[in-house]
């Protein structure tokens, strides 16, 4: 486990020293900063009376500030979820191919490291990165709005954690694909395909009705039953952020399922990795 953590931390250190990850952090900070300086929210007796952005009054309703913030948190949850997944798929596509690059993988495999530890560490590292990014964005937004309005809630942060778990499933697939063929493009394509298929899988019950009853519908159901329910978790994360009621047991089941999917994909990748010569 020490080695897995060491590999994960090395990946995070490597990412942290990459310019475009630094740029991402700076971008999020800049957005939050601009929002912090230009957004003014007038709260009177717990009600959001007026909102000004860049000095312009925004047409908003006068209502309890926590209720008024719900649509903002909901929208932010969707942005963090879908935007974060899309960005994560692109940004993290080359971590595994880079790990498996000729000249690097031989060096790593010659060290006292088990093969599975390398993949597990990479998976964990990327997951840590995704989580850190999501928490930074969601935490920053929560902090900003809390300072402006006095509403302190961890719900957007929880929503960001859901996005991170979902990304774990996508990245598991990307990692496995990289082991089969060392290509950042293939890795990104796998992530993108899982992302889109996962959106479809989230609406599988509704979409199944578009298929002819019988074999086509059964086939659609069978294929989508194996896919991570990306859109379901996106909606749930938005509900969570917007303080809408969420069925805890079903959410736990979905979360566990999607995390186990990620682990299954990693196990599949390790299976191939264990046999592979470099």
């Amino acid at each position: 486990m020490t080695t897995v953590l060491a590999v994960a931390l090395d990946l995070i250190r490597e990412a942290a020293s990459r310019r475009w990850f630094l740029a991402l952090g700076a971008g999020i900070t800049l957005l939050l900063g601009v929002a912090g300086f230009t957004l003014r929210m007038d709260v009177v007796d717990g009600a959001l009376a007026a909102t000004r952005l860049f000095g312009q009054v925004l047409p908003t309703d006068i209502r309890s500030v926590d209720v008024a913030l719900r649509p903002i948190f909901r929208a932010a949850a969707y942005v963090i979820f879908y935007g974060g997944l899309g960005f994560g798929v692109l940004a993290c596509a080359d971590f595994a191919p880079s790990l498996l690059a000729p000249g690097r993988i031989e060096h790593l495999l010659a060290l006292p490291v088990q093969r599975w530890e390398l993949l597990a560490g990479t998976f964990l590292g990327v997951l840590g990165l995704a989580m850190a990014g999501a928490l930074y964005g969601a935490g920053g937004l929560t902090l900003l709005l809390a300072v402006k309005t006095g509403v302190w809630t961890l719900r957007p942060v929880l929503a960001a954690l859901l996005a991170s778990v979902t990304f774990a499933a996508l990245y598991g697939g990307m990692l496995a694909a990289s082991v089969f063929a060392r290509s950042a493009a293939l890795s990104a394509a796998t992530g993108g395909a899982l992302f889109l298929a996962g959106i479809v899988a989230g609406y599988r019950e509704r979409l199944a009705t578009f298929f002819e009853p019988g074999a086509p519908r059964a086939l659609f159901r069978a294929v989508t039953s194996l896919l991570p329910r990306v859109s379901t978790l996106a909606d749930t994360s938005a509900d969570l952020a917007a303080s809408a009621p969420v069925e805890a047991l079903d959410l736990a089941s979905q979360l566990a399922g999607i995390a186990v999917f990620g682990l299954a994909a990693v196990a599949f990748g390790i299976w191939r990795f264990e046999q592979k010569d470099f």
Binding site: E14, R18, G103, E106, H107, A110
Partner: peptide, 16 residues
């Protein structure tokens, strides 16, 4: 492997 030191032919190093 802990007792082996290895230098590969084309060592790929993390540039950053």
């Amino acid at each position: 492997r802990a007792r082996i030191g290895y230098l590969p032919e084309r060592l790929h190093l993390p540039h950053a």
